[in-house]
Every structure is written in structure tokens, then in C-alpha cells.
Amino acid sequence: MPKLIKDRAIAIDRWTLLKVATGPEVLIAIPGKNLIVPLRFWQDYAIELEGYTGDIGIWLDSDETVSEIGDALGEFPLIALNFPVFADGRSYSNARELRERFAYAGEVRAIGDVLRDQLYYMSRCGFDAFSLRHDQDPDSCIAALDDFTTGYQATVAEPIPLFRRR
């Protein structure tokens, strides 16, 4: 089971990630969970999802954009952004867009190839939950959130850039 860091602490994961967009029968097979479904799944089976008993979150792959969720965004308590490989940086832009352009206030979770050395950057872009790759040590990952004391830019974590704070 992948380890989860949320709000800078090790946390119990109350969500189940649906990795691939299968058919709607999966909703019957695993009833009553809190499900993170792929964007496509939500687009294809919105009606079936209405009747589902658990909470629903959406995950976006790195080549999908937040605007594809549209006005429904506020209905979801969680949006997960995937890192197919850690060197694919598109989800950083998605995270900022979620927080800054769409003022999304729910959980923004990093999933996929989520590694210690990227966590500091992720947190500055607005991620507040990290589903770590299985081999990562959660304690050192929490420490990595403080790799730097401060940064120059205006970010989600610190919306006032350093030059306005010096």
C-alpha cells in the first residue's frame, strides 16, 4: 500500500485510486468506497457516478488540463495529479492552475512517481497530499518539505514573492 503524506504528516488513506478507466460495473464491484476516478471515467459515466454511495475525486494525467473538469470542479473534495515519471513537470502547472486560477480549496494530491526530491517543489505549487512511491521513506519525505527555508517566487505556498518581503 502506498504511503500517504497529508498536511505534512503521515496519514491514513481513505481513498481508493481507480487507475484505469474501466467500465461502470466497477462501481458495483466496489461499493461505498471513496473513489479517485480518471477524468475519462467521470466524463463517460457521470450518470452512474451520481448514484454511487462513496465520495468521488478525479485524477488528471499530466497531459490533461484542469479546465476539462469545468464548473463541476467545486463538487470534488479531492483532485489528484499524476506524475507518470517524476521528470514530467506538467502536473506542477496543473497544481498551480487549480489553486490560483480556479481557487480550488480541496485536497490536491500527487500520485504516480512521487519522490522525496521533488516534494518541496510540489508543495510550493499547491499540492498538500503526496501518495509516495512504495520505496520512499515517509519521514525523510516530510523533512524534504523543508529543504529550503525560503524561495524567491510568488507561489501557492507563499503568494508574496521575496522581493516584496525583503
Binding site: 521533488q118 517543489y121 510540489m122 529550503f148 524567491y152 507561489t155 521575496l162
Partner: peptide, 17 residues
């Protein structure tokens, strides 16, 4: 210098194409 600071550890652009 302003650009240097802005680009140094810019969290969104550490993994560009």
C-alpha cells in the same frame, strides 16, 4: 538579476521538456 532570482528554484519549471 531579477530574472536570475525568479528562475532560481522556480518550483513549476524544474522539470521542463
Amino acid at each position: 538579476e531579477i530574472i536570475r532570482q525568479w528562475s532560481t528554484f522556480h518550483p513549476e519549471f524544474a522539470h521542463l521538456p
